[in-house]
Write a protein that binds this DNA or RNA. Structure first.
Lengths: 334, 334
DNA sequence: TTGAAAGCGCTAACAG
DNA sequence: CTGTTAGCGCTTTCAA
């Protein structure tokens, strides 16, 4: 039924090895032979079977991508970066959502191993011990994208979350605020607990501002939790006058909460976000935000993975930190 | 190096056929044998090679998903629906972005065929003739998700775009508007030109409102083009008092354009959108919007594909239309 | 209930 | 420059 390399060989009066050579661009083929084979390939509409090829060569030219949730803009952006570079290097991508659930992550890793992917890009907000162990035993290279593993044992691509957060806090502190709220997603996510929150505390401490635990709110990171955060915090005897929000959605939630309350941003309350997705410009006032370059992180992670898969030995830095910056708009006064 | 079915067979003193049977849950295995094999599998950490399996069985349990752009929320949502159902039926997904570029779509289809996927879910805003032809010759079933092919020749899942758009327009018309602008993405996208725009015209005609071509704007569908649309239209001697926007981003762009201009929504200008993503609630006033249930469309499309792949003959309706509705919020007066 | 054996379609030595 | 020949790891008859 389907045309195989064997059919082409027969029609072209050559061996299947020769056909294989022309298909794989091997130079050791006489031009005239190549031409003949190419013609037959075209005529028969021969299309190499990647599965058979994968079995024989032990290379599938596909990489696994495990992310928490593709419908979340932040991960989708990273996925796009990953896919673009993968395409550039002729890899395909098997994409799967983990919902940040350890069991799913583990099972997905197993699935990827079974599918014989050539490598894996993993995004996980919490690299648990079990995850770590499975990754250690991986038959193929894995690189972490926008995800932190305490041991720094796996190749990874990130920004300096602590420093970026610290700078965001400084902006607020320099504007004279002493009541600054911290709002983030789950604190069992490494980046939230070990970097954003720690930077928040350190910045406060360095400025001799007393820490008020009530100003630290960790929910699911959604727009609604931003909205609710203001609801809660406004009841304090001294409500916060500034917010360090872990994501754009959160920041917009706060802004709308404040505005629905008849107050003004940034006049009454200033807000800085950590993400800078396209949402940042789609709110009034527009968000001042730490730029979390997800697309780049995904792209660089995938590029790093190709290098490792190719066993290029010039892979010096396996733990890449890409630069960050703060995009200044109107939700924080200048 | 890697453990194969053969290693397991040897260790368990059975033939590889038997191991294959237990791995595949074949019932024709004596329980005691099954137990013995299972133990060896566990001990050796045997993991079936899906590539070899795919070659032998001619089934890869993976489906191809071709979408315009995963970083676009609308497609990401659909992708999530597709993946969830795929996971449920134990399929994996090879995801690729086409950027709505015909050449890429064609080449991606070829890639998918080559990878021996068991089926394909395709999202394309413009099923061109070439695309159509390639799909016709596909060795595996293809279902269109949120995409229209004029011939209705391929299984598909959609909503009734025309009717939904017509209802949106009626809402505006019933509110007394006679200057209603139409704003959408590219008009070479079938849904925009053949359904949204046609419904716009028909609704106007049915209400005896004269069509003003200057009120029809088709750009790239971005937030900025929404912003700019207002810039342009406000200069008219009779600016529009209502907008039918093809997407949430567009609608928010318009709203901000109007507001930045010192006018009010919905008092001065009413806006209805066609999407209802989570953005719809993240703007003030919140968007009244036709609900375009992308997640469901993806999920139903994938479910339909599993049925076709399994050759279930109860697949009556290959062109599924799922219900739509309008979510009423504040950007349109009641 | 189990095993033997023939592929699946291709790559990759190796020989010529 | 080209052909021969083993596999790659598994599924799937066919027999027993």
């Amino acid at each position: 039924m389907t045309v195989t390399i064997y059919d082409v060989a027969r029609e072209a009066n050559v061996s299947m090895a020769t056909v294989s050579r022309v298909v794989n661009g091997n130079q050791n083929v006489k031009p005239s032979t190549r031409k003949k084979v190419l013609e037959v390939i075209e005529r028969l509409e021969y299309r190499p079977n990647a599965v058979a090829r994968g079995l024989a060569s032990k290379k599938t030219t596909t990489v696994g991508v495990i992310i928490p949730d593709i419908s979340n803009n932040i991960y989708a952006e990273a996925a796009r970066g990953i896919e673009d570079i993968a395409t550039m290097y002729r890899y395909n991508i098997i994409l799967a959502n983990s919902d940040q659930n350890e069991e799913k992550e583990l099972s997905l890793l197993d699935t990827m191993y079974g599918k014989q992917v050539d490598g894996i890009v993993m995004m996980s907000d919490a690299v648990t011990e079990k995850l770590h162990k499975s990754m250690e035993h991986s038959p193929v290279p894995i690189v972490l994208a926008g995800s932190v593993d305490d041991t720094n044992q796996f190749p990874s691509v990130n920004i300096d979350y602590f420093q970026a957060s610290y700078e965001a806090m400084q902006l607020l502190i320099n504007n004279g605020h002493t009541r600054i709220a911290f709002l983030s997603g789950p604190l069992n996510y490494t980046i939230n607990s070990k970097f954003k929150l720690e930077a928040y505390k350190k910045a406060l401490q360095d400025a001799n501002i007393e820490l008020d635990e009530r100003l630290i709110i960790s929910e699911d990171g959604s727009y609604d939790s931003g909205l609710e955060a203001w609801e809660t915090l406004r009841e304090l005897e001294a409500p916060p006058t500034a917010f360090f929000a872990g994501s754009d959605e959160l920041a917009i939630g706060i802004i709308h909460g404040v505005q629905d309350d008849g107050k003004k941003v940034p006049d009454d309350v200033e807000v800085i976000s950590f993400e800078n997705s396209k949402l940042a410009r789609m709110v009034r006032p527009r968000l001042t935000s730490v730029v979390f370059p997800l697309y780049d992180i995904g792209a660089v992670a995938m590029r790093l993975l190709t290098k490792i898969m190719n066993k290029e030995d010039n892979v010096k830095d396996k733990n890449v930190i890409i630069p960050h910056r703060i995009e200044t708009r109107q939700s924080v006064k200048l």
